[in-house]
Amino acid sequence: MSDFVTPVLLMQTLAAVREAGRIITEAWEKPRSIKYKGPIDLVTETDVAVETFLGKRLREILPEANVLGEEGSPAARPEGTTWIIDPVDGTTNFAHSIPQCGISLALWRNDTVEMGIVYLPAEDELFHAVRGEGAFLNGKEISVTDESDVEHALVATGFPYSIREDIDIVMQNLRAVLMTTQGVRRFGSAATDLAYTACGRFDAYYEIRLKPWDLAAGWLLVEEAGGKVTLYDGVTPFDFGKGILASNGKVHKAVAALITDTDD
């Protein structure tokens, strides 16, 4: 159980995330101002506005913590006590008014995620977890599925921004999973995929080349909901910079046998 995340800290952080979510909902029907960070990697003014707002609020809540955000931090991974922010995970979805997008926020301390929050404002779904205290959706405790047969498993995945370079391994893995499981879903938001795995909508999820802000919060959600998170081999504890495999635990080994990371 976390001895760092107090009820007051959790309450203040959840309130800040909900308030930041209103920036997204207020922008939902407005024209998007879009810039490209890469050939298929984009950012909107809403991403910047949410990260700026949250960065300010979180420094007020926990002044001693660093802030690692997708849009404003040059760091590659957290150091010390750090807020890890993805202001709009699934920016392409947001740009096209697809509801699977939202805020991913994690609190990192002592080389572990102590608190994770994923808020999907278009659907008003607020997921949160504190280490050792379970995972919740809109205040109701959630858990992973009990499915143990990989042929009945619904699996989520994502495609990296480096898809043009990684197309062979992505398609190899996708073919293997499609041929073996009940089906595959691709929503374009790692935070959504991990939250959905935590609450039992998916049985497993895998993806390569994600950044800490994409998955830190969802990583804790899955574990606190009773699931398992590792590298693609299904055994090695997960670490930033590697492919992530998250599941209900019961189909973990079977899904791991189907997929290969780019480093394997």
Rank of each mutant, 00 (worst) to 15 (best):
S2F: 07
T6S: 02
L10F: 00
L14E: 07
E19D: 14
G21S: 06
R22G: 07
I23Y: 04
I24G: 00
I24Q: 02
I24V: 00
I24Y: 01
E26Q: 13
W28Q: 01
E29L: 14
R32A: 14
S33T: 14
Y36D: 06
K37Y: 10
K37L: 15
G38E: 01
G38C: 00
P39Q: 04
P39E: 00
D41Q: 09
D41I: 02
D47F: 07
V48T: 13
A49Q: 03
A49V: 00
V50L: 03
T52V: 05
K56Q: 15
L58K: 10
E60P: 02
I61S: 08
I61R: 09
I61E: 07
E64H: 13
N66L: 08
E70S: 10
E71H: 12
E71K: 12
P74Y: 10
P74M: 09
A75R: 15
A76T: 09
A76R: 11
G80T: 00
T81N: 09
T82L: 03
I84Y: 05
T92Q: 13
N93P: 03
N93E: 02
S97N: 15
I98W: 01
I98E: 06
P99M: 04
Q100G: 01
G102V: 00
S104G: 11
E114T: 05
E114N: 06
V118F: 08
Y119P: 05
A122E: 02
F127G: 12
A129Q: 03
V130D: 06
R131I: 08
E133Y: 11
G134H: 01
A135M: 11
F136A: 03
L137I: 12
N138G: 03
N138R: 02
S143V: 11
S143P: 08
D146E: 14
S148K: 10
V150Q: 02
E151P: 07
H152G: 15
H152I: 06
L154S: 06
L154F: 03
A156P: 02
G158C: 03
F159P: 02
F159E: 12
P160W: 00
Y161E: 14
Y161W: 14
I163R: 01
E165C: 03
D166C: 03
N173V: 08
N173Y: 04
R175L: 13
R175C: 10
A176S: 07
M179G: 12
M179N: 15
Q182C: 09
R185Y: 12
R186S: 15
G188S: 13
S189A: 09
S189G: 05
Y196M: 15
T197S: 12
A198S: 14
F202I: 06
L210G: 04
W213V: 08
L215C: 11
L215H: 07
A216C: 10
L220R: 11
V222P: 12
E223A: 08
E223G: 01
E224I: 08
E224K: 04
A225F: 10
G226D: 10
T230Q: 04
Y232K: 10
D233N: 14
D233T: 09
V235F: 08
P237M: 05
F238P: 04
D239I: 06
D239P: 00
K242M: 00
G243H: 04
I244H: 11
A246D: 13
S247H: 00
K250R: 15
K253W: 11
K253M: 11
K253H: 14
L258F: 05
D261R: 01
T262Y: 09
